[in-house]
Design a protein around this nucleic acid. Structure first.
Lengths: 239, 239
DNA sequence: CGATGTATGTACGCTACCGCACAGATTGCT
DNA sequence: AGCAATCTGTGCGGTAGCGTACATACATCG
């Protein structure tokens, strides 16, 4: 006997109209999303969309020479696999689990049908997509203009928002791959943050001590993205 | 007596189903798009979408300190103002005419109605949006990993694809603003390309001598974006 | 408890790009 | 023709991050 999937853990599932949720629910499948798992490969066919609950997924592009760069990050607020309802079926980027956990997956056919069947579902997914677009745009800006220290802060904050608690399990090597920089660069930036009393870390475990401090030290990119997610996905929260 | 808008000059208008085109046509308005014109401001309400014909529009983010970075570029293949049908109504970025020309604009109401009324129109616009997303993602990657020389090549090629002929009217100062680098950096990169016999330029006028040479010198980002536009918007062209 | 792997720190020279200051050079205006 | 504005070239010191090589520390497991 299996548990019924719950919509509580993912913001998009929660925001679905009730009747859409009832249609979708039987097709949802709870899946483990272990660290390092590749959800899809560049150009590959997508068989499912994933709604993370306590996992975090990085969308990243891997260059021919093996270097990589993160394009955006998806957690319990979103869904992995927008190319399915956008109509492209695939993308040049990959999706890799950056912080292990679980989520729900839904067969491509079901999400496409639901997208076309319900205007409310469509608009919800499109608003989410626009928020994701903002994140990508800001990543481009950040890559151009901001220091590694600032980018690390932004990255930690984005991750923190997608986890409960204030600890991340994450080696510097992995962070370096996401940010597309040297591991030593991350070591250095992390030491700066540690000395400033903002974080404490040891062997793949980062504890955020002073979240506000991180917010002060990061660039405007974080706030821009955060605000846009709130505006597009939680309009009720605003004044 | 005014001319009827023609759909020939813009790829999206051309790809519309005939009946959608007939509905839209009466609301289309031909507009001049002079160099430097701001089509929309961050957070501002969008009153129209724009379909460029021989103009090029840059989507860019301007930071608090005034520095800027281009996020994507839109020409006769696309439309400016996707936030309207994506549901967000505004974006944190601006849209500025980077190469003067003309295009057609359509009131927000009309594009929204058409998006919701016709599945074919919706899917067309969403496929375009996915192509645009790819361009943004690749911009992020390029900003992270590639040299200014390569980025200039990419930028020239993207512009070239959106113009007829092989001349651009464009000061180095302006290019620098788009790429988010120093003007002197562009001077330097441009001299490199000039010495290599790929371009010839003088006071705001760039003539591309050897397009193939540019393609060889640029990074993979250009090809990735180009391919994705072709795949998503001209599926007939492929084998 | 010692051995092996994994994660992190350090050092050094190098390069691309920045910030700034200024020097031609071309174009347009009167 | 002469002047002003604009655009492009150059030089110089500064720095953030790269590539490489290696050193240390912690953790797991036999």
């Amino acid at each position: 006997m299996t548990h019924q999937p719950s919509r509580a853990g993912n913001g998009l599932l929660r925001a679905l109209p009730d009747e859409a949720w009832l249609r979708i629910q039987p097709h949802l499948q709870r899946v483990d999303m272990p660290l390092g798992q590749t959800l899809y490969q560049p150009g590959g066919k997508l068989n499912h969309v994933y709604f993370p609950v306590d996992a975090i997924v990085s969308l990243l592009y891997v260059m021919q020479n093996g270097d990589s760069a993160e394009i955006a990050v998806v957690g319990h607020e979103g869904v992995v696999g927008i190319a399915l309802f956008m109509g492209g079926e695939s993308t040049p980027s990959s999706a890799v689990v950056q912080s292990g956990g679980y989520g729900y997956r839904l067969p491509s056919r079901v999400i496409k049908e639901e997208f076309n069947a319900s205007v409310a579902v469509m608009h919800l997914l499109l608003r989410y997509t626009q928020a994701l677009i903002t994140q990508m745009a800001q990543t481009a800006v950040c890559n151009r203009h901001h220091t590694l220290d600032q980018q690390l802060c932004r990255w930690l904050l984005l991750s923190l928002d997608r986890l409960q608690g204030s600890d991340l399990v994450m080696t510097q090597e992995l962070i370096a791959n996401m940010l597309g920089v040297r591991r030593e660069g991350v070591t250095n930036a992390a030491m700066n943050l540690q000395r400033a009393g903002l974080i404490a870390y040891a062997r793949g475990h980062i504890h955020v001590v002073d979240r506000q401090g991180l917010e002060q030290r990061t660039c405007e990119c974080y706030a821009v993205v955060k605000q846009e997610y709130d505006r597009l996905l939680h309009p009720d929260k605003l004044a």
